[in-house]
Write a protein that binds this DNA or RNA. Structure first.
Lengths: 240, 240
DNA sequence: GAGTGGTCTAGACCACGCC
DNA sequence: GCGTGGTCTAGACCACTCC
């Protein structure tokens, strides 16, 4: 099963942008020309470019053409895309993230967790707290709830490595969608102890509910970081 | 110039979901059936449904069909979508937002602002600080920079109403894309004075760079709220 | 095998920005 | 008027899920 053509075309155009073959704020070849070059229909080229536009690599003006986006000038070191669907380790760069399991139990879900994960009160969940370290430095505390029936046979071995990898490769499941909330709050005891937050250090929290592609809720979690170690970014296009 | 068919179809399907004609976690009619009903091609129906899927109203499983999403159980009162492109007033509900202009000058841009808004050092910008009130209660301080050449003739009258409306309707310009960063920080003097933030109250900040559809940077701004009055939400679909 | 959504094509017409 | 991207169609084939 080969990759879809529009994905391949998108990858090739992306490569050309990254390599400098197409320059910032300059026009791409028109869709008909690209279609001929790649030996595909115009619609396939449009689909490829639409994907790149959603990600912010190009922007279009009807009547004029498709332009390569200039680099965004306000990038920061603490930036983390708020639209990831991978584990922290792949997100931050392989091998930089390690984990320390602070809490790992199986419990019947509270009414709130029942609601969030669409569970009956006799369907147990894992209750997991992990300290995640980046290059050995503590930087996130993750509190995660997952249904046992959806993610069976979790153990500390998996938790200290990558739960994402386990779900994806061993269970062969795929994340479908996520609802995320970003908020600020005051530090709690765990923040102070493990992230060395001072009493007046603001905390940044990402709360999320994640579903599999088949519609099953698979994770409810909140991740807390010190205000000076993390920020979340979103790119939005008004045309979609 | 009528609205595109796929938009109309999407609106009709959305209406049916909202009205309860299609139920949560149940299948929609298949695309062929909907295409016949609406008198359009299947691709047009697919395009409509894709849009709804991106917004989270439905989810699809190849081989099975399209399901209506169940309501998200973790909504909160302070939630604000992080993907808006409207003014605060339309975002929060008409007429609830008022504004107090704390600062309004025209200046040559600092090197940082030059970079963010792609300006030469002799191209002036507005430097605007506004206190936004919701139902009369202070809840956001917005610090905004906009190029004078792109948004001419701004005045306090417009600032106290809706800059968005002015840009959109009077200048006939349209926002195209935005890069946003969400972060936590300690309160500054303005936060303490106008938002009544205590010294240890965390602040939530949204920093953003906005472009018009023609690629021109039009706004660099940061908006600060007290941690207990605001949170930002994102919905993501892994398929796009 | 039947039914679903995903992809792809060739061709057409339209709206938009510019000259 | 010309060239661009946006929309739309009819028809085809494929991959996936369930029976």
């Amino acid at each position: 099963m080969p990759t879809a053509k529009y994905i391949q075309v998108a990858q090739e155009i992306k490569k050309r942008i990254k390599s400098g073959q197409y320059h910032p704020d300059e026009l791409l070849p028109d869709q008909e020309t690209l279609a001929k070059e790649f030996g595909v229909s115009r619609l396939t080229v449009k689909k490829a470019i639409d994907g790149l536009e959603r990600k912010g690599l190009v922007y279009k003006q009807s009547g004029l053409g498709t332009y390569v986006s200039a680099p965004i000038p306000i990038k920061s070191k603490t930036d983390t895309p708020a639209n990831f669907f991978m584990g922290l380790d792949t997100e931050m760069g392989k091998g930089r993230v390690t984990s320390q399991v602070l809490h790992f139990t199986v419990e019947f879900p509270s009414p709130e967790i029942q609601k969030n994960l669409s569970l009956k009160k006799n369907e147990p969940v894992y209750d997991i707290i992990r300290l995640r370290l980046l290059d050995g430095e503590p930087f996130v505390i993750e509190h995660t709830f997952m249904p046992l029936k959806t993610v069976p046979d979790l153990d500390e071995e998996i938790l200290s490595k990558s739960v994402y990898h386990y779900i994806h490769h061993d269970l062969n499941l795929k994340f479908g969608r996520a609802y995320r909330r970003i908020l600020a709050s005051k530090p709690d005891d765990l923040d102070k102890k493990f992230l060395h937050a001072a009493p007046d250090d603001p905390m940044l929290e990402l709360e999320q509910l994640v579903w599999l592609t088949n519609g099953t809720p698979v994770e409810y979690s909140y991740s807390r970081s010190r205000y000076d170690s993390r920020s979340y970014t979103v790119f939005e296009n008004n045309r979609f």
